[in-house]
């Protein structure tokens, strides 16, 4: 006998519930969490290193590194004297909240102010997954081209801030900055765009100040 059963159940229910628990845990410990999204090779690790440099005097920072394999990135962060936990997804194209929970269990949350999660290099899949973060930010690097907002609208829409890295290479790559900012402002008018060159340090201060202000605001609550 056929029967219809209403479920009205979110598909990512399990992930979202765990993300909610993590968000509460982060708030209780006064830790601000940033989920950083970008393509492979866009300069995520360099941007994180530059951000840590700018903020380490005021905040205690840890990094969760998501990669399909290797601990290359975590080693780079640790070499700078910052706590880093490597997650190897073993082929999965994005991080999920269960992976973050395992990583967080080895960190001392009470001693931290900021956790930066370096998501797997991918502009598509991480977009739909809540990790319990306070904010998502994304990096686009100049060599990837100014047309990326048109090709990957989702990631530009879910990001609270957009970092344009390798800005010093604009003339070489014929990057149309006006076309880029106009596409971004149509997709996500509220998000600030920070032009930086992570390895040279240019523009990092403005981005770091924005982040610092958000951390202070969250910690005041």
């Amino acid at each position: 006998m056929p029967q219809h059963i209403d479920l009205k159940q979110p598909i990512l229910d399990k992930n979202d519930r765990m993300a909610g628990e993590l968000r509460q845990r982060f708030a209780d410990a006064g830790v601000y969490v940033l989920d950083l999204l970008a393509s492979p090779g866009s300069g995520k690790t360099s941007t994180i290193l530059a951000t840590i440099d700018a903020l380490r005097d005021e905040f205690n920072i840890a990094v969760i590194e998501g990669d399909i394999a290797s601990s290359v990135d975590a080693e780079k962060i640790k070499a700078q004297g910052t706590a880093a936990v490597q997650i190897n997804t073993g082929g999965a194209c994005h991080l999920e909240s269960a992976m973050i929970r395992r990583a967080v269990d080895v960190l001392d949350l009470d001693r931290l102010d900021l956790i930066i999660i370096e998501n797997v290099g991918n502009l598509v899949c991480p977009t739909d997954f809540d990790l319990g973060e306070n904010a998502k930010a994304m990096i686009l690097s100049v060599p990837e081209g100014h047309d990326k907002p048109l090709k990957y609208p989702g990631v530009f829409q879910v990001s609270d801030a957009i970092i344009l890295n390798k800005a010093d290479t604009m003339p070489v790559f014929d990057f149309d900055e006006e076309a880029f900012t106009s596409s971004v402002s149509q997709l996500n008018p509220g998000a600030p765009v920070f032009k930086i060159s992570a390895t040279k340090g240019d523009g990092v201060d403005a981005w770091a100040s924005w982040l610092a202000e958000r951390i202070r605001e969250a910690q005041r609550q």
Partner: peptide, 22 residues
């Protein structure tokens, strides 16, 4: 540009049809 999304980000199982023993 100040707009908010009302719908379009759904990922939901609405319902299932099953065969119950009669």
């Amino acid at each position: 540009f100040a707009t908010e999304l009302i719908c379009g980000r759904e990922l939901q199982i609405d319902s299932i049809e099953v065969d119950l023993p009669d």
